[in-house]
Design a protein around this nucleic acid. Sequence first.
DNA 1: GCACATTCAATTGCGAACAATTAAATGTGA
DNA 2: TCACATTTAATTGTTCGCAATTGAATGTGC
Lengths: 153, 153
Amino acid sequence: MARKLSAADAPLRLDNQICFAVYSAAHAFNRVYKPLLDRLGLTYPQYLVMLVLWERDDVPVKDIGEKLFLDSGTLTPLLKRLEAAHLVKRTRSSEDERQVLIALTSQGHALKDKARSVPQSVLAASDCSVSELVAMKDEIVALRDRLNAVIGE
Amino acid sequence: MARKLSAADAPLRLDNQICFAVYSAAHAFNRVYKPLLDRLGLTYPQYLVMLVLWERDDVPVKDIGEKLFLDSGTLTPLLKRLEAAHLVKRTRSSEDERQVLIALTSQGHALKDKARSVPQSVLAASDCSVSELVAMKDEIVALRDRLNAVIGE
DNA sequence: GCACATTCAATTGCGAACAATTAAATGTGA
DNA sequence: TCACATTTAATTGTTCGCAATTGAATGTGC
């Protein structure tokens, strides 16, 4: 028997998947960021780590992971690359030797000024008003938090 | 001089980044899908490929790539893994020997029925009405398409 | 027909992302 | 104190994702 388009298949259609919308939008963002971040010598996940550090410095790996929803398997090699690029320094905490504290170098601090043009370039690429983007962001964050709540059972 | 919270820093604050909202939501979706897809023996990107093939079979790699915004560097090894799992078959097109056509095996077809429960499980996890999700999806797709339009210059 | 560009998939190399495990440091209860 | 659990990063192995290159097949302009 021939397979035909069926209403029963609608939930499995690619264009009906919000997850694919989110997935493909994330990749689109990545491609927009790439040329901008190349000039800073950063990848997108490295940029996210730098955003965290520009807000608060000298934090354990765990804190960065909680903010970005990433684990040490991702962060350890990434932070070593940032260290190799002389943007951060990794030092064991003296109070708790299990922790590795991540601190910006002077170059890491200085990069913040170069990064200021990035958000507005992305805003321009999105061809969208700030208020619309803020509304979308809030919706997506709310959805993400509901999903994450389910993961923790 | 001490660095303090400044209005000039707002565009660089992690919580103000819609790209991070999208990025972290994509990961949250991935984590929700993981246990569901494990039962099908699929990863999330593999699931996306199967969604494409369940809609239309016997398509060149390029078509799959255009629908999913992925290139051969990602798809070739992924499709080889699907072939190793006996879900698809890869054959050179006789009309154009440059193309590799991807066709579902009987097992690949059969997996569709097992996959039908996935979307509703994710819907439940999102704790959101269908109409809200559809509205969000449309907004995100529109944003994605604007971003992709900029990438093509 | 023949040089040339184009198209398509495969390959290589690098950087995430994550599960699972390991090892060291710390905390806890008896 | 001492056995035990917990916390924290690092490590290992697998899979994506993409840039850049390669090589074969096809299309083109002369």
